[in-house]
Design a binder for these strands. Structure first.
Lengths: 243, 243
DNA sequence: ATCTTTTCTGCGGGATCCCGCAAGGTCTCG
DNA sequence: CGAGACCTTGCGGGATCCCGCAGAAAAGAT
């Protein structure tokens, strides 16, 4: 059994290496990569390695790397080890995990023991391990009370990219009016809605732009989510202009 | 001479501690804090310490902490030690450094020796040290060719916060039309402008929202810059409603 | 199958945005 | 002092956005 470490920070990388050797004495090899690209390549070469990786690397962040690794070998076990539990990350991960896959998500702020325990649980006992804080995020995100539908999230991304209503309608196969409906819905859920009853133009907000702002502040969106979305948009645009 | 370390990651903190002791054997004390708040307090208590800190902590990031520290003792020497050279960070730092202050900005990806050299240069020889990459950023940012005026940056922030033209006009003491002029200017510089000659609604972009998107993608804006802006906006709003 | 609930869709209108045009301002430079 | 460059402001209009209203279609529920 081999373990592949994908992590850009040298300090964290060597710490991880040590932790893996300590927690998994039965493993016979630890590989290291310092970004998503190198990680994918290593994963391809050395078949059947378990992976522990950071999200937020450059070039090619953890989510992208995980997606291609899982696409090639869905049974790979991956432990995500990240600084943050942004909703954007949690959602991004749970969007790409294959059915029945074994994986984990622990925060870097977790204790030494927690990390080692997670390593054993996932790689030896085939058991998923999700940090409490992340789990909390996940439930808030999926249990739709105060959480966002896929449709809402989708349109949030579209306006964050700067698309017009018409463009969104085209892209998602909807009428313009439906797009606007979803927008209204989104505004309500983000608490950016100003019922005309509430006098005083106190706010003076452009709802569309404001929605993006609060989504960013609440970490519903972050840089890498935007990058991913921008890339998707680019391929869609290409498909449009030359079908 | 004492040195204060403000850094949230334990690994990096202890690494820094070691580096400081190695590079500055003449210092007689190393203090540690794990966020901006604790850092400010320590800086207040123990007068006359040199500081080395991370940006991007929570609660209270490095820029905010540095601002209050410098407000209380402008002669404090601060070395910023960060993962990124986002324009938003560089601009944020150079906005708050007092005239004549000695400071430094080195990336975490720099070598061991570079860090130690920077420590000695700043704290012993009173010489500013800015990482090449950061310096490049700075020049691109200030040498206004392909860089942004203060006015442009300001309005970029305002639309990113979701303000309407009218609200911006009020806030910045301009007419609505002038705000729109600045917006056009911004659109051009961000490359988001669609000359009516270039037919085809190919883009289908909402310029205002698109501008924010590309600013984020280019890291002209980031989460902490937005947070800061949001806080500023809040105090301004309060001042408006109850003068 | 019928009724309810939800979603999609068109219509219409008020508010906002984007921007060309032109009439002032300020500032510099020759 | 006048010429030129730049910023500001008002006006006007076309495009877009935001949204209430109401009918049609789809999805569940009884």
């Amino acid at each position: 059994m081999k373990v592949l470490i994908i992590e850009d920070d040298p300090l964290h990388r060597s710490y991880l290496n040590e932790a893996v050797r300590a927690a998994l004495p039965e493993c016979d090899g630890v590989l290291e990569a310092e970004n998503g690209n190198a990680g994918e390549k290593l994963a391809r070469d050395c078949k059947s390695a378990h992976v522990v990786m950071d999200l937020q690397m450059s070039p090619r962040n953890g989510i992208e790397a995980a997606r291609t690794i899982w696409k090639e070998r869905p049974e790979t076990r991956i432990l995500f080890w990240s600084n943050y539990s942004d909703e954007a990350y949690v959602r991004g991960v749970s969007r790409i995990v294959p059915v029945g896959a074994v994986y984990g998500y622990v925060l870097k702020s977790a204790s030494d023991d927690r990390l080692k325990l997670a390593l054993r649980s996932i790689f030896i006992e085939s058991q998923c391990v999700i940090d409490r804080e992340v789990r909390g995020m996940q439930q808030k995100s999926l249990g739709n009370m105060n959480g966002f539908t896929e449709a809402e999230y989708e349109i949030l991304i579209d306006i964050a990219l700067g698309l017009t209503d018409r463009a969104i309608a085209q892209r998602r196969n909807l009428s313009v009016r439906s797009v606007q409906n979803r927008l209204q819905q989104l505004y309500v859920k983000l608490g950016v809605y100003q019922p005309p009853g509430g006098q005083g133009d106190d706010g003076g907000f452009n709802l569309r732009a404001r929605a993006v702002a609060v989504a960013l502040l609440r970490k519903l969106l972050n840089h890498s989510a935007l990058e991913r979305a921008e890339a998707d948009l680019a391929v869609w645009l290409a498909r449009q202009t030359s079908p």
